[in-house]
Design a protein around this nucleic acid. Structure first.
Lengths: 117, 117
DNA sequence: CGCCTATATCGATGTTTGTCAATATCGATT
DNA sequence: AATCGATATTGACAAACATCGATATAGGCG
């Protein structure tokens, strides 16, 4: 071990003019929460689903619209949509037999803003 | 398994004045690549490691400095650092017996910029 | 050389995860 | 009520993953 290295969230210099900007280290619970949200995003199918819903003309899409583009079974798509919804990235509204999904505005951005830099 | 998959990126309206901004859906390979990068981030331990390195006074930290803060065994920490390095978020430089890790500038931001909104 | 220290790799293990087929639920329509 | 169509849930299974102990590698130092 080179030096002592206390390793606690530091904020000794508030306006240091160096480039990388010294942010404080994530707390244990913050890291856990962030990881949980990122896990919901860290799947190619879910990213595609999210982007398809985001790119939909009316801002929403139903399961029947999403099954074919991703090329997976209906239960699997339903499962992924549930994961994204429970993580707060989508909202579900059922109209008749169909379930429509919309992107929660700003949800992804809020998570992205928490990433260490 | 990846079937035909039409789903072409749409760009019907380039400057629609609605609010949510209509971005094109992610391609299959883009989604896979993004998911791979996000998987590297989507772990509480790796997020903590990354943030600790980022918050380190000299912008770098060695494994011996990182083992204790995250409370895991040395092989486990070494493994997580390898994952982060192979994903392009950290760079490793060995000096003597020690391996120092630095954050790759802008790497996280580039990934964050690819997220669907 | 021989030892110590720091890090990486290996092998094993328990857990999580993505997927599907089968089935259940629930609304609409006849 | 009987049925159909869209979606959700369940159960099962294989693959991926996080973790550890043991071991290997390799640099520094006596």
């Amino acid at each position: 071990m080179p030096t002592a290295l206390p390793l606690l969230p530091r904020e000794s210099d508030d306006a240091a003019c160096g480039r990388p900007a010294p942010a404080a280290a994530l707390s244990d619970t913050d890291a856990t929460d962030l990881a949980r949200a990122l896990k919901a995003l860290a799947d190619p199918t879910r990213l595609r689903l999210l982007s398809i819903v985001a790119a939909s003309p009316d801002g929403e899409a139903c399961v029947c619209d999403l099954t074919e583009p991703v090329g997976l079974s209906q239960p699997t798509v339903s499962h992924h949509l549930k994961v994204l919804t429970e993580a707060g990235f989508l909202i579900r509204s059922k109209r008749g037999t169909w379930a429509y999904f919309r992107v929660v505005p700003g949800a992804v951005d809020r998570i992205a803003a928490l990433l260490p830099r």
